[in-house]
Design a protein around this nucleic acid. Structure first.
Lengths: 255, 255
DNA sequence: TTACAGGTTAACGCAGCGTCAAGGTCAAGG
DNA sequence: CCTTGACCTTGACGCTGCGTTAACCTGTAA
């Protein structure tokens, strides 16, 4: 089976330009060039391309893919783990970014119109410091390896604990608000809706992404989960269902 | 207060090259050019640079920053939310990548030496399909806006529920394993360690990043948290402390 | 006067292709 | 035989956000 460049591209779901580029950088050369100068690819090339696509899928650079595929002694296992670390770092940075953006949105929602330049500057400076620490930390890690990774982890631990404390506080708030709201008997009452809103905040301490649908889905599951049901029903039987209804109302998922 | 290019760069913690580049693309022009052809920046420029840095920090492109800062009618709120969506998408992709890398590592750890090309191909093709769906979904979203966002959310909801179910199953496993392990009375026993390991898996359903330190920290908190303590102690009083000790052992955090 | 610290413009380089430009090749149809 | 259209070729610029020479000018202290 011989493939033309476009057939090959179709198989892999990439462009012919990409194949030409791979030929150019020596990552994937065609099996032969026919009399008209056309690139012809064979089975071996299909296989190699699949390997390439695989590692590319994992976000490796074409250079590294070349290393991996050409050197048989290449420690792919180590490469994968290092790569994983890098991805985790990337994600941590992204998380910071997202948090910052969300913070900013909240700030704007708060309608704080007059925000002194000094304030902005302060917040910014803080961020700069954080960034520097991050960069510094990265350099250290690159230089000294694992020893200092623990330090970084400790930082994350600090964040997790902070997160956990925030969650615990929210939980207490939910509980007291729910107790009051339950007396109204109306899941649509402002107090009940406040409880649902607090519950949303609480969820956001644990979930990577909040959606109303998922929130509602969780609420439905709650009532069927003995642990949560027991927790919420402990003081006031029926509270779990009440919270569920409040959340369904809050998320607009009542049918 | 007039600043030279380097003073300005120092204030903002960036390079002078960056300032020249911003001048070049018209993002930030100096207040004036002095007789020697030097760029001189004033207070207005400091302020604007801070704004630029702010949005840059949030991951906006310089082009968009220019839009935001130059058009007073620009809806920064909307821009922020759109940007947030994009970041979330990015993170979702990253999560996929990380999962794939981890899967691959497990595969390699499993010492499955002979892995037929077909198998590789299958897995890869699946991924292609997923990607196509993702791309398609993005296009749709761009074209039709919010309506279809719900569909995407439903997908995420599916993931969350799946995640939740996995967590629930793990929880059951932890409980039964813990019950058995408790009878041994030894938190270092294989069974107890298995429970700790399961608990780690369970944590990973909720946490963005797992570290031994955080796991141990959580274990310590557990005992002091009535909800979890009550949950684990319900059948066998002392189980919570036992689990904590098993986790401390598991994470090597015994002092 | 000599250093040395600072400024200037111009231009290449990076990753991974997308996207013309300008043309050659091949099979089908008039 | 000619045209048309699909497919192939090489070559080269463009994109992002600067880092990094290179080659040269300015200002000030010793």
């Amino acid at each position: 089976m011989e493939y033309s460049i476009q057939k090959m591209a179709q198989i892999a779901g990439i462009s012919s330009r990409t194949l030409r580029y791979y030929d150019e950088i020596g990552l994937l050369k065609p099996a032969r060039i026919n009399s008209s100068g056309y690139r012809m690819y064979g089975q071996n090339e299909v296989d190699r391309l699949q390997q390439i696509m695989f590692y590319r899928e994992l976000g490796f650079s074409l250079d590294r893919i070349n290393d991996i595929l050409s050197s048989p002694a290449f420690d792919s296992r180590k490469a994968l783990e290092e790569h994983r670390e890098q991805l985790l770092l990337k994600r941590a940075k992204l998380d910071l970014l997202i948090a910052n953006v969300e913070k900013t949105i909240c700030y704007k929602e708060g309608r704080i119109k007059t925000m002194s330049d000094e304030e902005k500057f302060e917040g910014f400076k803080q961020k700069l410091v954080e960034d520097n620490e991050e960069k510094y930390g990265e350099e250290i890690r690159a230089k000294y390896g694992e020893n200092t990774i623990n330090e970084a982890n400790n930082k994350l631990l600090g964040m997790s604990q902070e997160n956990f404390e925030k969650a615990a506080q929210l939980e207490a708030e939910i509980k007291s608000t729910l107790t009051e709201a339950f007396k109204t008997g109306n899941p649509a009452s402002p107090l009940a809706q406040k409880a649902a809103s607090l519950h949303k905040d609480w969820i956001c301490c644990y979930w990577k992404k909040y959606t109303k649908e998922a929130h509602a889905g969780l609420a439905r599951i709650y009532v069927g989960d003995e642990r949560f049901k027991a927790y919420y029903d402990k003081d006031q039987p029926g509270s779990a269902e009440f919270l569920r209804d409040a959340i369904l109302q809050f998320t607009g998922q009542m049918e």
